[in-house]
Amino acid sequence: MYKKILVILMFITLTFTLFLAGCGNTTTGETTLQKAQKTGEIKIGFANEKPYAYKDDNGQLTGEAVEIAKVIFERLGIKKIHGELTEFGSLISGLKAKRFDVITAGMFITPERCQQVAFANPEYSIGEALAVQKGNPKNLHSYEDIAKDSSIKVAVMAGAQEAKILKEVGVKENQIVIVNDQPSAIAELESGRVDAVTMTGPSLQAMLDSAKSDKIERVMDFKDPVINGKVLRNYGAAAFRKEDTDFVKAYNEELEKMKQSGELLKILKKFGFTENELPGDVKAKDICK
């Protein structure tokens, strides 16, 4: 009889423990959103990548993703933001490890990333861009041009989507030079250690404007890569932990209001975006398929 009672008690204890483990916070039962609303504070992960999320000359955190998030967080009752500078390639692992609560770095939504994080709906859409040495000596106008010449080297930021895209159009892995951040990519091009640098259009333009170098230039007639017969277009969004479904829902509701009112476009324009970069009616779930 004693053994039966002991087994029952052990079962009840184990069940209760598993129930608590399934809650957003094992000590309070709060979700990330509830905790942030209660404290009025949140920690975000960013990668110091213009124009998405970076610190300006005064050390203030800004960028299109940050400014959009600030508006939404404030309307959700979260007024104070703490930024956690992280290499782009470590943002998702940092989010999952709870070093911060949201990624506001203009990260592209991809099916692979959707397996690891929950994306809000896109806040912008964008194409790729290419910078080369002055005069474009290698005559590069597309990723396909890079693929045709195995001697050409192209710099890409660690963790960025461009490395995968380059490989999909036939660029060999040994042609791709991985760097820690965008300034490093520009430095590689200026020094001649690579023949090209690729990143998104607004990001590349922001870096070139900042560098003010007479040694490099943007390829203005760059042709967007074509993958599986479709011209590539990327969509960027904030990312949350998988379990933070209430946060994603609340964020999306406020983002939609900003789209409808025109407020989203006003913020995007401050960082070099145009109406062409608006996300339209595309939803994260459509891209995650």
Results as ranks from 00 to 15, higher is better:
residue 56 D to Y: 01
residue 58 N to D: 10
residue 126 I to E: 15
residue 238 A to N: 12
residue 156 V to G: 09
residue 188 E to L: 07
residue 198 T to K: 05
residue 83 G to E: 09
residue 181 D to C: 08
residue 141 H to N: 09
residue 206 A to N: 13
residue 161 Q to S: 13
residue 86 T to M: 06
residue 40 G to C: 07
residue 162 E to L: 08
residue 247 F to L: 01
residue 273 F to H: 02
residue 185 A to M: 04
residue 189 L to P: 00
residue 121 N to G: 00
residue 55 K to D: 12
residue 11 F to P: 07
residue 274 T to S: 12
residue 180 N to L: 03
residue 94 G to D: 03
residue 7 V to A: 14
residue 24 G to I: 03
residue 105 A to F: 05
residue 165 I to N: 00
residue 81 I to M: 04
residue 73 F to G: 10
residue 8 I to Q: 13
residue 62 T to D: 02
residue 176 I to M: 03
residue 193 R to A: 14
residue 164 K to Y: 01
residue 65 A to N: 11
residue 276 N to P: 12
residue 176 I to E: 00
residue 284 A to G: 08
residue 280 G to A: 01
residue 177 V to M: 07
residue 233 R to Q: 13
residue 37 Q to D: 11
residue 168 E to G: 01
residue 9 L to I: 09
residue 182 Q to R: 12
residue 259 K to T: 04
residue 228 N to I: 03
residue 96 K to D: 04
residue 19 F to S: 07
residue 242 K to T: 12
residue 141 H to E: 06
residue 124 Y to G: 12
residue 74 E to V: 07
residue 24 G to M: 03
residue 27 T to E: 14
residue 7 V to Q: 15
residue 69 A to V: 04
residue 114 C to T: 10
residue 266 K to H: 09
residue 199 M to L: 15
residue 30 E to G: 08
residue 275 E to L: 02
residue 256 E to I: 05
residue 214 D to H: 14
residue 242 K to E: 11
residue 134 K to P: 08
residue 161 Q to W: 14
residue 129 A to C: 05
residue 101 D to V: 07
